[in-house]
Structures are given as C-alpha cells and as structure tokens.
C-alpha cells in the first residue's frame, strides 16, 4: 500500500491529511487517479492552469523523502509520498 500525506495547500483540497492506497504505476498516473476521488478542486491545484495534463510547478512531491522535481518515477506500491504546495518559506 502507498502511504500518502497531504500537507499545506493540498490537504484542504483533499479534506484529509493521510490516505492509504493500493496503486502501482507512475506518479502522473497517481495524480490522475487521485483526481477521480478528489475532483475539480484537486485538478485545479495539481495541474497547470494553461495545460491540464502538466503538473503545477508549485506542487512538490516527495517519494520516500526524495523530491522528484520534474521526474515521473514508477511506484512499486509500498512507498511513502508527501504532496504539498510550499508556504513556509526557505
């Protein structure tokens, strides 16, 4: 099972902070999958305004603590992911 934490900027869109999900595949596929559960508000935040399939550059995704940046890694299904939109400064 994936463990997914939603922090600043995204937990409000999802309505919770932690989700466990049976999923294997790419991170971009996971974003689409989550869009089915969390709808328009999720899509508005996670995808770029001008290109609905491109990730919003303000959405940060850590997989097992590593910032994936612009990559789209394959998930084996047992990782811990953290999604957030930075607000706390540097």
């Amino acid at each position: 099972m994936l463990t997914i934490w939603f922090l600043s900027g995204l937990k409000e869109a999802v309505g919770r902070t932690e989700v466990r999900l049976d999923y294997r595949g790419t991170v971009s596929g996971l974003l689409e999958e989550l869009g089915k559960s969390y709808g328009q508000r999720w899509r508005e935040r996670v995808f770029a305004e001008d290109a609905p399939t491109r990730r919003n550059p303000f959405v940060k995704i850590l997989v097992n603590g590593e910032d994936i940046r612009d990559e789209d890694p394959e998930l084996a299904g047992d990782e811990t992911l953290i999604f957030f939109m930075p607000v706390a400064g540097g």
Binding site: W5, L7, S8, K60, D67, I82, F84, A88, G89, G90
Partner: peptide
Amino acid sequence: YAWADLIPHAAGKAEIDLAVGTPALAVL
C-alpha cells in the same frame, strides 16, 4: 529539512519538540 513545510508535519507526528524558521512557518 529540505523544505520548511515538512517541519509542521514532523511536529504533528511528534518527531520534533521545537521548530525554527520564518514567520510563515511560525504561523503554520
């Protein structure tokens, strides 16, 4: 932490006792 936003998350999981950072981190 590589991102300050992970600090409130760590505090919520009782992994830290104190936090140091910006006024935005403080309000969070």
